[in-house]
């Protein structure tokens, strides 16, 4: 069995995708099947108000926490944490802006909110997963 199959980061990424994205989507589908047969939920409709951005901020916070406890040098930890925090905040700001526009009846393009939150969440997710890979490597080098 290749070494990376047993790596912690793979299970961590799978859990995040399963619990953060697939579980809400499958719950929506199950609700639609039971109560409203015409309703066809898709991820782009479920997360169209930028909810993925909020989820990304939580993900970034958990990776920052892991980074803070790692054996990397303090400047390195600072650079990684700032990058993760900035991308997480920008992803969450899509959700905030969509809410504000909706609440004040301002011009709102839900398609644009979905695309923005999806792209920024992809960025946060990819930074998080590579950071966890790097932390996994460092643990093996240090111990």
């Amino acid at each position: 069995m290749p070494e990376w199959i047993t790596a912690k980061w793979l299970w961590w990424a799978g859990l995040y995708l399963a619990l953060g994205v697939l579980l809400p989507w499958s719950m929506t589908r199950s609700w639609a099947r039971r109560r409203h047969k015409d309703f066809k939920p898709t991820p782009s409709r479920l997360f169209r108000r930028g909810e993925l951005g909020l989820l990304s901020l939580l993900l970034a916070l958990s990776v920052i926490w892991d980074l803070q406890r790692s054996g990397f040098s303090p400047p390195m930890v600072a650079v990684g944490s700032v990058l993760l925090a900035m991308s997480g905040i920008m992803a969450a700001s899509v959700w905030v802006e969509t809410y504000c526009r909706e609440a004040t009846n301002s011009q709102l393009d839900l398609r644009r909110s979905w695309v923005a939150s999806r792209n920024l969440s992809l960025l946060v997710f990819s930074i998080s997963i590579v950071t966890e890979v790097l932390l996994d490597r460092l643990t093996k080098v240090v111990h």
Partner: peptide, 18 residues
């Protein structure tokens, strides 16, 4: 510029690096 424009490109580069 919208931040989602460079975010996708940076995400793909990040995944490639990984």
């Amino acid at each position: 510029i919208r931040l989602s424009d460079p975010a996708a490109a940076a995400a793909y580069v990040s995944l490639l690096f990984g």
